[in-house]
């Protein structure tokens, strides 16, 4: 049985109380996660742009599957008075963290426009929305075609008649090997480790670790046990699930080869060491 692991997967740390608290003991891994891998303002901007491009009007309602702390849902609803968000995740403690740290920070009116629900994304709770999204590759927990197809069918049912489904995928030469990369952030180091990649079934085991200036660390703060799907596989499955069209949005790069944050629809690209795309299912 596939579970919603996604960004919000929690693991009890069960550490003994230390005498002198290290940075690792004081920090909050959900907070570090949000700082390291999420950029909900950029997602909101992209969602708005792509929806207008494909549908010719502004999106209002958004469903965030595998929502974890609901960071994107909260950012969406707070960005405009007309916007509502419905987040779904299996993991109650992560949702609770999100209510306390993300939802509580919104204005009372914005809070009213967000609903965070504990549930399985396959159960199709809630009504239809303009946009249904599954970000941060969380659907990788569905490791068989049948499971992923079922999820896409449910997601499609949750998309309004004039709506779209948005998901993300990473790949490239370095996406399919065992590799570790680090990024220096404000007061800590974020480490992405692809501990395993199995070419005979494309199962991959990845971890997020955090390291701190005092030498302390949180090893395996988050662990993901995924099948790394390919772009053509996802597009074929979306069509099989009933979407009428699919689009792939690729990030433009500047002269130095760095990502510009600007995503455009494309059908023909050269492979790269590492890429991240948005894939859209048009209902």
């Amino acid at each position: 049985m596939a579970k919603n692991k996604g960004k919000g997967k929690s693991k009890g740390k069960g550490r003994a109380k230390p005498k002198k608290k290290s940075i690792a003991d004081r920090v909050d891994r959900h907070d570090l996660y949000q700082q390291s891998v999420q950029a909900p303002e950029a997602d909101v901007e992209f969602f708005d742009t792509v929806f207008r491009e494909l549908r010719g009007h502004a999106p209002k309602s958004m469903r965030e599957d595998f929502c974890g702390t609901g960071y994107l849902s909260c950012t969406w609803a707070a960005s405009k008075r007309s916007r509502t968000a419905y987040g779904v995740d299996l993991h109650a403690p992560t949702l609770a963290w999100g209510r306390e740290h993300n939802l509580a920070k919104l204005s009372a009116a914005a809070q009213e426009r967000v609903e965070l629900v504990e549930g399985n994304v396959l159960d199709g709770l809630g009504g239809q929305q303009d946009i249904v999204c599954a970000l941060n590759f969380s659907y990788g927990v569905f490791k068989t075609r049948a499971e992923l197809l079922e999820y896409f069918k449910v997601a499609r049912e949750k998309v309004a008649a004039q709506g779209i489904f948005i998901t993300e995928l990473y790949g490239g030469f370095e996406g399919i090997i065992e590799v570790e990369e680090e990024r220096e952030l404000d007061g800590f180091t974020y480490v992405w480790e692809q501990a395993k990649f199995n070419p005979i079934n494309h199962h991959t085991l990845c971890h997020i670790h955090f390291r701190f200036p005092d030498g302390s660390k949180i090893k395996k703060a988050f662990t993901y046990d995924w099948r790394l799907w390919s772009i053509p596989e996802l597009r074929e499955l979306l069509l099989e699930a009933g979407f009428v069209d699919t689009k792939v949005y690729w990030e433009r790069t500047d002269d130095d080869g760095d990502g510009t944050g600007d995503f455009v629809a494309t059908e023909d690209e050269e492979n790269q060491d590492s890429w991240l795309v948005y894939i859209i299912g048009v209902k």
Partner: peptide, 8 residues
């Protein structure tokens, strides 16, 4: 000669 990640 080339490989297209969008279509393989």
């Amino acid at each position: 000669h080339f490989f297209d990640p969008l279509t393989h």
